[in-house]
Amino acid sequence: MNNVQSLNHTAWDCKYHLVWIPKYRKKILYGELRKYLGDVLRELASHKESKIHEGHLRGDHVHMLISIPPKYAFSQIVGYLKGKSAIHVARQYMGRQKNFTGLHFWARGYYVSTACHDEEVIRQYIKRHEEIDKKLDQLGLFK
């Protein structure tokens, strides 16, 4: 009960393990884009009163542990994060300022599980992926 948050009439501790991939699972989430997307996703989550507790962008997928208030549907938040971040990528890296029709950065689906009692296991899993990426970066495999 130490992570309980509250709204006016609700006390809650709703955390989710969320994973999604870029379209066609292309390994495009490296370098400058990776650093940029981390900040964008955290900012977008805060717009919907959500918080990313742990997150890691792998070359071909995104992992995060996110808490979302119960007043929002989970699918609404995921759609918001994926949609708005895709627009940011199109503006920043594709030179598009408007008319985003037909641009698909993220694949349609996602994986989600609730993180009630196994939160620490999920945190360690995400951190382990981060350590593996650092080793790969040192070897120069994804630059």
Results as ranks from 00 to 15, higher is better:
residue 2 N to W: 02
residue 2 N to F: 04
residue 6 S to Y: 10
residue 7 L to S: 15
residue 7 L to W: 03
residue 7 L to K: 06
residue 9 H to K: 07
residue 11 A to M: 02
residue 11 A to Q: 07
residue 12 W to R: 05
residue 17 H to R: 02
residue 17 H to P: 01
residue 19 V to E: 04
residue 20 W to I: 04
residue 24 Y to E: 08
residue 24 Y to D: 12
residue 25 R to Y: 05
residue 26 K to R: 09
residue 30 Y to W: 11
residue 31 G to D: 04
residue 32 E to M: 01
residue 32 E to P: 00
residue 33 L to E: 05
residue 33 L to T: 10
residue 33 L to C: 09
residue 34 R to K: 09
residue 34 R to Y: 01
residue 35 K to P: 01
residue 36 Y to I: 02
residue 38 G to L: 03
residue 39 D to P: 00
residue 39 D to W: 00
residue 43 E to G: 06
residue 44 L to K: 08
residue 44 L to D: 03
residue 49 E to K: 13
residue 49 E to V: 03
residue 49 E to T: 04
residue 50 S to R: 01
residue 50 S to G: 06
residue 53 H to L: 13
residue 53 H to A: 08
residue 53 H to F: 07
residue 54 E to N: 13
residue 54 E to H: 10
residue 55 G to S: 14
residue 58 R to D: 15
residue 58 R to M: 15
residue 59 G to P: 01
residue 59 G to W: 00
residue 60 D to F: 02
residue 65 L to R: 02
residue 65 L to Q: 03
residue 66 I to C: 05
residue 67 S to Q: 08
residue 68 I to P: 00
residue 68 I to Q: 00
residue 70 P to H: 02
residue 71 K to P: 00
residue 72 Y to K: 02
residue 74 F to M: 11
residue 75 S to Y: 06
residue 76 Q to L: 01
residue 79 G to D: 08
residue 80 Y to M: 08
residue 81 L to S: 02
residue 81 L to I: 02
residue 84 K to N: 11
residue 84 K to L: 08
residue 85 S to P: 04
residue 86 A to N: 02
residue 92 Q to L: 00
residue 92 Q to E: 15
residue 92 Q to R: 11
residue 92 Q to D: 05
residue 96 R to Y: 11
residue 97 Q to A: 08
residue 98 K to H: 12
residue 99 N to F: 13
residue 100 F to A: 02
residue 102 G to Y: 11
residue 103 L to W: 09
residue 104 H to Q: 13
residue 106 W to F: 08
residue 106 W to K: 07
residue 107 A to S: 15
residue 110 Y to W: 03
residue 111 Y to L: 11
residue 113 S to E: 13
residue 113 S to N: 10
residue 117 H to Y: 12
residue 117 H to L: 12
residue 118 D to G: 06
residue 118 D to C: 03
residue 118 D to V: 04
residue 121 V to F: 10
residue 126 I to E: 15
residue 129 H to T: 10
residue 129 H to E: 15
residue 130 E to Y: 10
residue 131 E to F: 07
residue 132 I to D: 15
residue 134 K to T: 12
residue 135 K to S: 14
residue 136 L to E: 15
residue 137 D to L: 09
residue 139 L to W: 12
residue 139 L to I: 12
residue 141 L to Q: 07
